[in-house]
Amino acid sequence: MFDDFLVRAMLAGVGVALAAAPLGCFVIWRRMAYFGDATAHAAVLGIALSLAFSMPIFGGVLLVSLLMAITVSSLSGRGFAMDTLLGVMAHSSLAVGLVAVSFLSGIRIDLMSYLFGDILAVGTTDLMVIWGGAFIVLGLVVWRWSGLLLSTLNADLALASGFNPKQEQLFLTVALAIVVAVAIKVVGVLLIAAMLIVPAATARSYSGTPEMMAIIAACIGAFCGLSGVQASYVFDTPTGPTIVCISALLFVISSVASRVSFFRRSL
């Protein structure tokens, strides 16, 4: 069954969606929507490095994303606002990455496939990396859930209950870096942020508790992965962007629907 490239593509999409959804909730709650973007941009530098030292793409991307994540989270709160830091880091690492790629003589890489992903080329080894990464991330999130949630609500409340908000933030950024590294093949650098945020944003209006929001976001993400692969096959469209288009469409429909029902209730 794993021989079929469509099945592999669907499995890969679902794996990324499951890991990205709960993280996406935290990204939204903590108002760090730009963080996914920034880490994803930094990943281009990771691709260049892995090609230069001929190591697996996953390793190079993970290394650079982790560095980026740790730098940003240790610099935040020291004179610069989070969005300023992310802006500086994202654009400079993307630029350095592109310059570094141009130095690689003899190797011609298809940068487009890393920017937009190439989910249909996912092999069995890639699937194992994706699902392994997804399990690690989900494990991290479940293990740190209370501490993460409490530090997101209020750092002082977390401190008073014996959690260390800085440490929780580090767990979150490491998990984000892992998601970026495993997702780069599937949806590509530019669309990872969308996979993080759009399903979680769609889930918001149907959730009463944080847990519910994470679970609904995961279901929406998985659905988008499955239907996106099929739609791209039927309409012969690029797969990564199709997945994101479907989740954007769901977001629009659900926003309109929740507005309408709110309006009806208030009549």
Partner: peptide, 13 residues
């Protein structure tokens, strides 16, 4: 953007 009921909040951590 963070949905949370009073009971869930009280149950944290």
């Amino acid at each position: 953007t963070l949905p949370i009921t009073v009971t869930r909040f009280m149950n944290l951590p």
